[in-house]
Design a protein around this nucleic acid. Structure first.
Length: 920
RNA sequence: GGGCGCGUAGCUCAGCGGUAGAGCACUUCCUUGACAUGGAAGGGGUCACAGGUUCGAUCCCUGUCGCGCCCA
């Protein structure tokens, strides 16, 4: 093996091999375990959020596969209707064309072409990450099978009356020319104005003042409303207003919707352009006057002078004309929420159109129940409250989109306006007995992208066919997702799964945090703080990184700032850390928190961890190669038994971590075992045995055996998090440990050997370590060179100490680098020494030529100060009668023991200080 | 306005009723045969603040302050 771990050389090769050998396919007859991937946009690229999520899903998948489960990680991609259509339209625009120049059919062809060109990117990136998805089952939301599932659900829901077509107000995007669901509209607070308008009473007896943030919509007003209990206006209810700028007369109505305190307490009502006004209009049977066309330009319903004006231009003209007529009472600054499309960022217009809706209440009920009853569990648990909050206030889902890229709605219209729904035109004709001569035209609209996503857990497994996969893998085990799409996706999958499969789509929902940059900022192109996971794996030089971050900005003026910040944060670009380091970093960040700050400092630490593991393996292999491992007798040493005990504890902690989605704790347990227990202690202890002239061959054999078997178990334990380095090392180590399988992927995840846990062994090893640490501390604080060997004496050693000393002296001498370690006989005078205490036993480092008296006094004083403080605290506790009577006896006993230890040690150190002081 | 969350070492985060932990950063020493992407030793925290419950609170409860997210 090379001296330095070099991920680049191993990762691509191993992945290609795994894939070629079909290692990712479900195998064996264990318990089925399935995860469906949240399908990324087919034409997108992998970002940090994907990489994080994929790491978690892959860790779960590999872990369960190794546990013997029949494991499927179902991959696939989403057609991402609006997003993809926009990208292709932009490409056309750049060439001076629009989609209308091409026409529907040619445009869709063009999108498919784009999908074919760029669709492989994210799959390639996933392979770099090591994702063990079953690529042979790869699905796309627009492929034939999934499209059939979409049609099937639409038709069934329609037949049951759960899909209907309605003329309603929708969120209309006047730029994209499509309706949007409530979720796709984001409201931002903006500072605008509140115009107070005078509306004359029709009988000329005065006027009312109405306040509005959108004066241009007055052209579509069909009433003025006041609160029924507002005595200021009670006498006016039922009378008429002469609506300015128009020839119309509109009524004054009373409705509790009106807030008396807001403005003047009178509200203009525009039922065709405001959701609240629409409902009020329904209650009062008001006419709807639609004043906008699809571009939000004023139409023929308004007086001629305003026709053809854009809504914002119209606002200026209407205000100017009202002003001129003396009908503006006042204009005050006002904060309001402005709705915008999440894709186009255009101001959304409530607009009256025909759309398709899903009647959601009958679906929501069972979906709420599934979580309440615990059939679906959110992790962390409290996300269920967010889910309930949303589900209990859910509104019908507008599923039609006026786009071309997507699943076309399976509805056909006859010339007379009749609507027929069916799986295809032939079925429609057959079902409704329509003759071949009757012309039918299919609905132009497509379905909301999330409609097909909602079917994902069963459509990918073959539904509506009754496939073996459905039978085996549905319900899937867990959905791994960010909280940002609980409503968009999770809730809808639950509703559709219950409806069409009669069971929940997954048993658990693991909701992870969102990856942000080191400052907690969302990563975005315009902020220039985006990290590409591939750049962390492969590294990138500064100039390339700068070019990447500043290219194609929507606002080019930001480039300078981005360049400055990037130069500051990455003066030398980004080093190459490798996939395993990145994955281990993600795992360590997978806490329960909502925002995950990606601190680049951490990945370096975990790259070093990979290197540590690599070199530990080199040492183990070097120590073992050329020696027979199999048959000879073995005499396990204390160290052997100890590291097995520690391994059992670490595996237990890791398993608990994996099972509870605490990848941070799992990774921490493995990190600490590997570095602290295995490398820092066990490998050093093993050197003492293997290099010893006195150790028996049976002990050496046991040590070699323990080295190789511990490493081999550790590799298997780490594999779900670090697939590449573990496989690479395992290919050499597995054989030496007697394993014959072709890949670590298919080896069993190591089970903690609970019989290896041994308190006596732990206690004796603790004694060895404490002794070594005590000597090292004196060495460190006395500035004695690590290479300088000296003698250590043990005074007041008990029988137990002497027994331990005899058994473990070789280790202490080696790890503390001593020339000798021996007990001081009773009655022999102690040489002047630096002293450390272990219980009764005094550890003496003779000072002659080694130790400076002043430094030793300082060292002792420091310890004494600390001890006095600790002792004081403990004494305070025990002097409290309430504590002694009320606290559990074990706790009181522990404090008493503590006080005894502290007192003895303190007395010892004080005496020692006095002795050293006299040497001055 | 409603819902949810966060405030622990310089930074990023674990812990969550019995004397505070990690990584990175920092200080000192060290190229000894796995590893300087390393080893050894060390410094650093009134666990946001105020009350309460408790023998005991960073941890539980209430409130205050600060920060964030979602929904309307």
């Amino acid at each position: 093996m090379d001296k330095t771990y070099s991920p680049r050389d191993i990762e691509a090769r191993l992945y290609a091999h795994w894939e070629a050998e079909g290692r990712f396919r479900p195998a064996g007859d264990g318990t089925p375990y399935a995860i469906v991937i949240p399908p990324p946009n087919v034409t997108g690229t992998l970002h940090m959020g994907h990489a994080f999520q994929d790491t978690i899903m892959d860790a779960l998948t590999r872990y369960h596969r190794m546990r013997g489960d029949r494991t499927l990680w179902q991959p696939g991609t989403d057609h991402a209707g609006i997003a993809t259509q926009m990208v292709v339209e932009r490409q056309l625009n750049a060439a001076g064309q629009t989609r209308h120049d091409l026409g529907r059919e040619a445009f869709i062809k063009r999108v498919w072409k784009w999908k074919d060109e760029s669709g492989g990117t994210i799959a390639r990136q996933m392979r770099r990450l090591g994702t063990s998805v079953d690529w042979t089952r790869d699905r796309f939301t627009m492929d034939e099978g999934l499209s059939r599932a979409v049609t099937e659900t639409f038709v069934r829901l329609f037949d049951e009356g759960l899909i209907y077509r309605g003329k309603r107000l929708v969120n209309w995007d006047p730029v994209l020319h499509t309706a949007l669901s409530d979720l796709e509209v984001l409201s931002h607070e903006e500072t605008g104005s509140l115009w107070h308008l005078r509306y004359p009473l029709a009988d000329g007896s005065g006027h009312l003042v109405v306040a509005t943030t959108r004066p241009e919509t007055m052209l579509g007003d069909t009433a003025v409303a006041v609160h029924p209990e507002d005595e200021r206006y009670a006498h006016l209810v039922g009378r008429q207003i002469a609506l300015p700028l128009t020839e119309r007369r509109i009524p004054i109505v009373a409705d509790t919707y009106v807030e008396r305190e807001f403005g003047s307490g009178c509200v203009k009502i525009t039922p065709a352009h405001d959701f609240n006004d629409y409902e009020l209009g329904q209650r009062h049977d008001l006419p709807l006057i639609n004043i906008f066309d699809r571009n939000a330009v004023l139409n023929d319903e308004v007086p001629a002078t305003y026709r053809g004006l854009d809504r914002f231009e119209a606002r200026k003209r209407v205000v100017a004309d009202l002003e001129a007529a003396g009908l503006i009472e006042k204009i005050v600054p006002h904060k309001l929420m402005v709705p915008k499309g999440d894709r186009s960022n255009a101001v959304i217009e409530p607009w009256l159109t025909d759309q398709w809706y899903v009647r959601i209440e009958p679906l929501a009920g069972p979906a709420i129940e599934a979580v309440e009853s615990g059939r679906i569990k959110f992790v962390p648990e409290n996300w269920d409250r967010t889910y309930y909050e949303w589900m209990r206030n859910i509104k019908d889902w507008c599923i039609s989109r006026q786009l071309w890229w997507g699943h076309r709605i399976p509805a056909w219209y006859a010339a007379d306006g009749s609507i027929y729904v069916g799986r295809d035109e032939a079925e429609v004709r057959a079902r409704h007995g329509l003759g071949a001569d009757l012309a039918l035209r299919q609905d132009d609209d497509v379905l909301d992208t999330w409609f097909s996503s909602a079917l994902w857990p069963f459509s990918t497994l073959g539904w509506p066919e009754s496939t073996l996969e459905l039978k085996q893998f549905y319900p899937t085990a867990v959905l791994v997702t960010g909280f940002d799409i609980i409503f968009f996706w999770v809730a809808r999958m639950i509703m559709m799964g219950l409806k069409f499969m009669g069971d929940v789509p997954f048993r658990e929902v693991y909701v992870h945090g969102l990856i942000r940059d080191g400052e907690g900022q969302k990563m975005s192109k315009s902020k220039g703080n985006v990290l590409d996971p591939l750049d962390l794996i492969d590294g990138i030089d500064l100039e390339t990184l700068l070019a990447k971050r500043t290219a194609g900005l929507m606002q080019p003026h930001l480039a300078a700032g981005i360049e400055k910040a990037t130069r500051k944060q990455f003066p030398d670009g980004i080093a190459s850390y490798g996939t395993d380091a990145l994955r281990f970093t993600f795992a360590s960040l997978a806490t329960l928190s909502r925002d995950i700050r990606f601190d680049v400092g951490r990945i370096e630490g975990y790259r070093n961890f990979c290197n540590k593991l690599w070199n530990a393996a080199r040492f183990v292999i070097m120590s073992v190669e050329g020696h027979e491992l199999g048959d000879g007798p073995q005499a396990p040493t204390l160290a052997d038994r100890w590291i097995r005990s520690r391994l059992a504890a670490a595996l237990e902690a890791t398993r608990t971590g994996f099972d509870g989605y605490r990848f941070d704790l799992a990774s921490q347990a493995l990190y600490e075992f590997t570095w602290y227990d295995f490398c820092d202690w066990y490998l050093e202890l093993s050197k003492a045995v293997l290099n010893s002239e006195t150790a028996s061959e049976a002990e050496k054999r046991a040590t070699r055996h323990t080295l190789i078997s511990t490493l081999e178990s550790l590799l298997r334990a780490l594999h779900p998090l670090m697939p590449f380095i573990t496989e690479e090392i395992w290919q050499r180590v597995g054989v030496l440990a007697g394993r014959t399988g072709p890949t670590i992927m298919l080896e069993p995840w190591p089970v903690a050997d609970t019989t290896a846990r041994d308190p006596e062994v732990d206690g004796e090893m603790r004694w060895v370590m404490d002794l070594i640490l005590a000597v090292r501390q004196i060495r460190g604080e006395m500035d004695i060179a690590p290479s300088r060997r000296f003698e250590v004496l043990l005074a007041h050693a008990s029988e137990s100490d002497l027994g331990r000393l005899a058994r473990t002296r070789h280790w202490v001498e080696r790890l503390a680098n001593l020339s000798s370690l021996r007990p001081l006989e009773l009655g022999v005078a102690e040489p002047e020494s630096a002293v450390a205490l272990m219980g009764q036993m005094r550890i003496l480092v003779p000072m002659a030529g080694l130790i400076d008296v002043v430094a030793e006094m300082a060292r002792l004083e420091k310890r004494i100060v600390k001890l006095r403080a600790d002792l004081g605290k403990t004494e305070g506790k025990l002097s409290n009668a309430n504590f002694v009577t009320n606290a559990p006896p074990a706790v009181v006993e522990q404090e008493r023991a503590r006080i005894a230890d502290f007192s003895r040690e303190l007395a010892g150190l004080e005496a020692q200080l006095e002795r050293v002081r006299r040497l001055q």
